[in-house]
Amino acid sequence: MPDLSPKIDAAALRDRLATPDAPRLLDVRTPAEFAASHIPGSYNVPLDTLREHSAELRGSLDEVVLVCRTGGRAAQAERALVEAGMTNVHILDGGIVAWDAADAPLNRNRSRWDLERQVRLVAGLLVLLGVVGGVAVPGLEWLAAAVGAGLTIAALTNTCMMGMLLAKLPFNRAPACDAERMVALLRDRRP
């Protein structure tokens, strides 16, 4: 499917947010990632929730900018909304990382690690365990090879199975996003 909606960079989005007809910002990261840092005024609608309720969201939104860490999940959310019939959908180019690099306002809660940092920690520990443990337990070094293969596949497909698994752990879960409440909130707060 061709890219039907343009990406918007951080500077252009800041300008648009200052206008009376500002688009809605939907952050499709996990609730824990959203709690750690988010753009003021954005709404957390995790990717799975957005996919499940895309038709309802379509009826509540005129223009939307999708936000995630770097743009991968936002692109998946864009496809879901476009398939549901929305036409005025944009993606924050470079995601929260680009927004932060542009020194744009960001609500932060440093008590949580973002998912990418957790993936790096777990992958590094598994590789270290595989290499060092392979001295005592022959064959354990294949764990390091498996992690390397998984990271390669993650890069090639722009998905991360380890990240998806880590997102399901209790410390990465914040209160669930109530889709009905979110749709009502978005409908009631039209610009």
Results as ranks from 00 to 15, higher is better:
67 V>A: 12
81 L>E: 04
4 L>S: 07
154 A>K: 04
129 L>A: 15
16 R>W: 03
61 L>S: 12
26 L>M: 11
45 V>P: 01
96 I>P: 11
101 A>Q: 15
181 R>W: 10
38 H>C: 12
100 D>K: 15
128 L>H: 07
184 A>N: 04
166 L>W: 02
173 R>D: 12
31 P>N: 10
162 M>A: 08
161 M>S: 03
100 D>P: 01
34 F>W: 14
128 L>D: 11
164 M>S: 09
36 A>W: 05
77 A>L: 08
121 L>Y: 04
77 A>N: 10
107 N>M: 11
99 W>E: 03
89 V>F: 07
87 T>G: 06
144 A>Q: 06
177 C>G: 08
144 A>V: 04
166 L>A: 09
30 T>F: 02
96 I>K: 15
92 L>Q: 08
112 R>E: 04
30 T>S: 15
23 P>Q: 13
132 V>D: 13
31 P>D: 13
16 R>L: 07
141 E>A: 15
41 G>P: 03
61 L>P: 02
80 A>F: 05
42 S>T: 09
17 L>P: 00
176 A>G: 12
111 S>C: 02
57 L>T: 13
91 I>G: 06
23 P>H: 10
25 L>S: 10
111 S>A: 11
84 A>K: 01
85 G>I: 01
65 V>K: 15
87 T>H: 05
75 A>P: 00
97 V>T: 13
45 V>E: 04
186 L>E: 06
164 M>F: 04
72 G>N: 06
165 L>Y: 01
191 P>K: 08
180 E>L: 04
44 N>R: 11
132 V>R: 09
74 A>Y: 08
122 V>D: 08
69 R>V: 05
179 A>I: 02
168 K>S: 14
11 A>T: 08
190 R>I: 13
153 I>S: 03
188 D>T: 00
53 H>A: 09
77 A>R: 11
52 E>G: 11
94 G>H: 08
177 C>H: 10
181 R>P: 01
131 V>Q: 12
83 E>H: 14
